[in-house]
Design a protein around this nucleic acid. Structure first.
Ligand code: FES
Ligand code: FES
Lengths: 143, 143
DNA sequence: TATAAAAAGGATATATTTGTCCTGTAATAC
DNA sequence: GTATTACAGGACAAATATATCCTTTTTATA
């Protein structure tokens, strides 16, 4: 569904969003420990998120990462699109060059509903929503 | 969503299912041409489907592939599971080792509905259903 | 029986994804 | 301003997915 890279990205964003706003900046080491991901690889992913302005970072002592804007205004679809692109949202389930009503693959009519369901969920679920679930202890970022 | 391998597999199965029952056996070359897939690679995939008894084959002149049982009794989820395994149906969206109600990831509650939607669709859509759409000309296997 | 046709299977090649390592750069603190 | 800290970025490595090639096996048929 999502690439591993994308899963790491979502988990990392959620983790950073769970931290109290006072605590500005959290380090790569802490993030990758919290979400149980390979540190150096996670670093690359965070870089990409910073480039896409979903995350922000500062260097040097007490440096680290923080959410670029209000977590209530970042939705999961933005993270997915930033990392995996839009094939999940617009691509054909069976691999046709282009998904369209005019030249649909044999599952298009059924798949479209599912894709819209998924897309809708990702576009309406904010980082704040999911981070709160972690903060109240009903959801987890690692096993 | 599905691996390329799995997409080829589904398309190939659909193509074979579109052929009239009289026409026993269709060759690899014709299949890969019909679904626009690399021939040798498609051969490997068909082998796997034969091993899993979704397809059947005969060697020699006039040999080729044919659907192992009634296309009305083969559903898409069987093909997906045969090729990609069951991670799509049972795995965690965010990569937790195990998807569960007791230790859910932050999107579990929302993702479950979508996964069930998808699973239900794949389990209730038969090869016959989709092959007929191709045969009446409202769906296509290649661009 | 010899020949040809077609899938099966092994070995190998290529591309992509995932992951590591090391150096560079910016910021802070002393 | 020097040392230290932490992200940025480039080069490289490993793992996996995708794809090709060639030989073997089986079957049909001339
Ligand atoms: S054409 Fe295949 S999903 Fe739309
Ligand atoms: S725990 Fe992540 S989808 Fe169920």
């Amino acid at each position: 569904m999502f690439s591993k890279t994308c899963k790491y990205a979502i988990n990392a964003m959620i983790y950073v969003a769970t931290l109290p706003t006072e605590q500005e900046r959290v380090g790569l080491k802490e993030i990758s420990k919290a979400i149980n991901s390979p540190e150096a690889f996670t670093g690359k992913i965070l870089q990409a998120l910073v480039r896409d302005e979903l995350l922000a970072s500062t260097k040097g002592p007490n440096g680290g990462f923080f959410i670029a804007k209000n977590p209530a205004e970042i939705v999961l679809s933005q993270i997915v699109e930033s990392i995996d692109g839009d094939t999940l949202f617009t691509g054909c389930a069976l691999g046709l060059e282009k998904c369209s009503e005019e030249h649909p693959c044999p599952v298009h009519h059924k798949f479209k509903a599912i894709r819209d369901h998924l897309t809708g969920m990702l576009m309406t679920t904010s980082l704040k929503d999911v981070a709160e679930r972690v903060n109240v202890g009903i959801s987890f970022l690692k096993y």
